[in-house]
Design a protein around this nucleic acid. Sequence first.
DNA 1: AAGATAAGATACGTTATGGTTTCTAATGTG
DNA 2: CACATTAGAAACCATAACGTATCTTATCTT
Lengths: 204, 204
Amino acid sequence: MTISKPDQAEAAPRPTRRRGEALLHAIYEASILETAALGLSGLTMEGIARRAGTAKTSLYRRWSTPEDILIEAMHRNFPQEEPSPAATDLRSDLIAALMLLRETSASPMGQALFAVVAEAGRYPHLHKRIWRDVFDARGGRFTKTVLHHYARAGRLDPARITPVVEDIGEALFIKFVVDNGLPPDRAHIEAIVEQAILPALGQG
Amino acid sequence: MTISKPDQAEAAPRPTRRRGEALLHAIYEASILETAALGLSGLTMEGIARRAGTAKTSLYRRWSTPEDILIEAMHRNFPQEEPSPAATDLRSDLIAALMLLRETSASPMGQALFAVVAEAGRYPHLHKRIWRDVFDARGGRFTKTVLHHYARAGRLDPARITPVVEDIGEALFIKFVVDNGLPPDRAHIEAIVEQAILPALGQG
DNA sequence: AAGATAAGATACGTTATGGTTTCTAATGTG
DNA sequence: CACATTAGAAACCATAACGTATCTTATCTT
């Protein structure tokens, strides 16, 4: 759950001189790892360059701030996998959706996202950009997808799927991460589904 | 919802030379305002001294890191008001508890707390200290207090008050803040109580 | 009133980062 | 193969915070 610094003086194994896509990829990855490790406020051109094994010059040639790099990086790498509610019962599909969120949040991308959202209050313009360019553009839905799927199939009363109810799973997930510093295990996720989401849907 | 920098060159109205409690108070307040404005990673001795209108010397005389100041400040200023479930119905008492949380979270103290908790993942030792010295020592409970009160009074099945259920209100509250950058209004709080907490208690 | 205490101003050398500029040589193209 | 790109290295200056040391003087104590 923790991403360490690049450490040693030579962070770059110097594969050879990269260009185009290969270089971009390394830079994007570095920006995400840096954010996961140091947070939004710790994100600097120097840090990204160091971790990517490139020179600041190559960064400033394309972007003017570290945030610009991060936004592009997150836009490209955002996990698209939506939960596919194929199974037969609501309970398992909700659990599967939250387990998917669990995987996502454990990745460097997930940690970077968490850091950004957590600090975004102090960077209002970033908050907007993240929501517009990353969350809304790509997925960002987990239990929501499942709930609407079941509602469309007529197996759930659409009236009960309010904005609050849509958020219960993710909200309890996030609170757990904040409190404990790591994502909940399967048992806790099952408890969330059984003790909070299903009752709110009238499926106690 | 945003705390601005001390701005002008002269942040200190120079009331006169303060000592003891008066000085301490100013320093504690400054540390909380700095954290609310700049986050944990932006907290520096220089910043606190500047905002408190004092000299770094006076800070180093007592503490060795800005975090030490902040911990003490939060310990002292943590809002103790527990919700007092005097009323007759569970619904209004839960709403009152979350409205109290709303007030708390809007204060500089609340914002600082949010910033710290959000970034604490990257400062594991701080995370521990905050939880031990601030949260556990003082309150940190809102709907939890209400739920246990009703359980003791025999008006709620204790078996339903699981760790997950205890967290529902605060979790949805926090998620709202993260998503929108400001705390929920009364209508949304009512929705949280009616659509999420009460159903989980079997009081739909 | 005299002396002890400590607030506050100032300055200093160090370190880290920011952002820019200049130069080199590797890589891809025609 | 020759040339145009551009990645990467290095040096630069400015800023900001660190931690410490020195000195003055307001304020409290006795």
